[in-house]
Design a protein around this nucleic acid. Structure first.
Lengths: 361, 361
DNA sequence: CGATGTTTTTGGATTGATCTAAATCTAGAG
DNA sequence: CTCTAGATTTAGATCAATCCAAAAACATCG
């Protein structure tokens, strides 16, 4: 019982090797080992090698938790999205992951499922885990003061894709207004004068931007047919809305859809009516998901590059962490219209500006 | 300069309130506050309330990092998938997230992009962050000894969807073999005798299971037409393979595809040939993604319930963390065939077992 | 009242790394 | 040979919690 096993002997019971053990093995102090681990230029070459050999020999595993306690970085980030099952967010998360892992960061991911409550709980947990920052795609119905709360917490936060609260804030997204303008310009160039917009729900920045782009371009081109149908943003909505729209007295000759899911639904709805997408009515989507290219017909779509948005958002967060009081930045990527069969054909422009003549008499 | 500011005064500079501060405020000891936080039954009701009031009053934030250092739980999990952009994994991650957050866990997510190197780096980082366990969808080409390595680390690991290494291991997935059998049974019931299988790459457990299911059911039904085309698992592959297949001397009357993406490609390929999916050739997919229902025609598919798989995997991981030496478990969910228009029609069975007659003379 | 047994509460050690300021150890100059 | 500037190395305190064993408070009973 009097067996005095000196602490930090060769191998601890549960294989937990610490700096102390390495220091002993290499014949230096704990501090020196710590410096080697952090690649400090202070330590001499010979010593560095000696220590590194000991690290290898003992199979040491760095304990980031302990490091974070004394230091003030955890090298972790919290990421909140509202629909991880949507391939758009999948690609975005892949971009975030790529940018972060390059810098040695890892990220906690949570799916708010558009519930502000779930979102709130997750953010609180992130605070307890002391993440260095947050990437937030705000859930629908998020209280705009949330951003101030996070600021009070001293928690860097980059909003992505959508944003709430008053500027200035950090934000990474795409220029939906410009994207919709590109789509309208393209359609007008093909002779379209009756262009409708399908989908978009609630009062979200990302939805507002699209709608504004739509209204502005119509005005710029002097078109006075305007038809904007609100709805959620699923394939089902596209399917239903297009059928409703084509039954109107003066149906559109082209539709721009809130995203590709809605656009696929719209194309399907046209087929159901015996019409051919791209010929009887042009269809343009937004996002340019992989499936767009392989649709029937191939779907014209505004590419929004979710992977790149994710990368930018991550970069922005890392910059803000490094310089918490720097001026807030908004990174807005330019989208690019990808023209395909669903809108390629030019149509006969009607002579009247009012554009009331039926298309196929 | 002799201003002795007693440490842990009312409010620290950077708003970091600790147990000590609460103890002072409530007039108890640090230990008692800790017990209250962990909802220990040891502490008296009156004291508990007093402490809780102080916690509220001071705006205390629990520091999980510090807790993890002394305790031995971090309440975190590492999740590795190989293609987060795939909606299937999106749904699975949503299931994982739901199950974990119910238990107060959060998860680090990484996308291996099917690179064993990236996967390895991430796993090592997870070890440094001392996660309680790992959910792993092994990347293609993963060294089977990886599982042993993780065991050496003392790191609980649940494999998901695919598995490598020798049993016993923890695993959650779906019974692909059964799923394919269900598809074959259904097609045979509709009169099909020439059923092909499209796609599946490399030597993965999930692919092997599908192929075995295919071969076994053909044998069980005494069919001797067998055509299995290997390829990767994209829409593009389906598009190319089906056209190659229909050009053969004896084309199949039905195809089962590795997943829904391949199936969509196959349907598109049939249309390109002027054939009607579901009439000229039945098509069955696997996964039953949301788009299946809205395809043209609606796609028959084997539902594999990714959300449920994610939930099961997470539950299994938590069980293993609670009992590291418990016997390994394999949770294999039963898939269910969802019959839709792409395979609904019955065809005239050929008289010859060899099934050489052409279908539309 | 003191002995005994339960509840509650507590101080001090511990976890594993980082920080700071001070202690060494060079090497070159005077 | 001493002195100093520069390069290395180090001891000890610190971060914010948990664990443990022992102390204090309280109740019960002969």
């Amino acid at each position: 019982m009097s067996q005095d096993n000196s602490r930090s002997s060769s191998t601890r019971d549960a294989g937990s090797i610490t700096l102390q053990d390495i220091a002993l093995h290499a014949g230096v102090s704990r501090s020196t080992v710590s410096l080697v681990l952090r690649e400090s230029p202070l330590v001499a070459e010979r010593t560095r090698h000696k220590v590194q050999r000991s690290i290898k020999a003992l199979g040491y595993v760095y304990n980031r938790g302990a490091a974070a306690l004394r230091g003030n970085r955890t090298a972790t980030l919290g990421v909140v999205v509202y629909d991880i099952a949507n391939p758009f967010f999948g690609a975005m998360v892949a971009g975030i992951d790529a940018a972060l892992s390059r810098e040695g960061y890892v990220s906690f991911l949570a799916n708010s499922a558009d519930s502000p409550d779930r979102q709130q709980r997750f953010l609180e947990r992130m605070r307890e885990h002391a993440v260095d920052g947050i990437l937030l795609c705000p859930a629908e119905g998020t209280d705009p003061t949330l951003i101030d709360t996070l600021a009070t917490w001293g928690m860097p936060c980059v909003q992505v894709l959508r944003h709430v609260g008053a500027p200035p804030f950090d934000y990474a997204g795409t220029d939906f207004r410009l994207g919709v303008c590109q789509a309208v310009d393209h359609l007008v160039g093909r002779g379209h004068e009756r262009i409708a917009f399908l989908g978009g729900h609630a009062e979200h920045s990302a939805t507002r931007e699209r709608w504004e782009g739509y209204r502005e371009s119509l005005a710029r081109h002097g078109l006075n047919y305007q038809r904007l149908l609100r709805a959620t943003v699923t394939r089902r909505d596209g399917f239903a809305l297009i059928q409703q729209l084509m039954a109107e007295a003066t149906p559109p000759t082209a539709v721009i859809c809130h995203n590709d899911m809605v656009a696929f639904g719209a194309m399907l709805g046209l087929k159901r009516l015996g019409l051919t997408p791209g010929t009887d009515c042009a269809v343009v989507g937004i996002d340019d998901v992989e499936e767009a290219e392989l649709g029937d017909p191939a779907l014209t779509s505004v590419a929004t590059y979710p992977y790149a948005i994710g990368e930018e958002a991550a970069r922005l967060a890392l910059r803000r962490i490094a310089d918490p009081d720097g001026t807030r930045e908004q990174v807005v990527l330019a989208p690019r219209l990808q023209v395909r069969a669903s809108s390629e054909a030019a149509i006969e422009p009607s002579s009247s500006t009012l554009a009331l003549s039926s298309q196929h008499p």
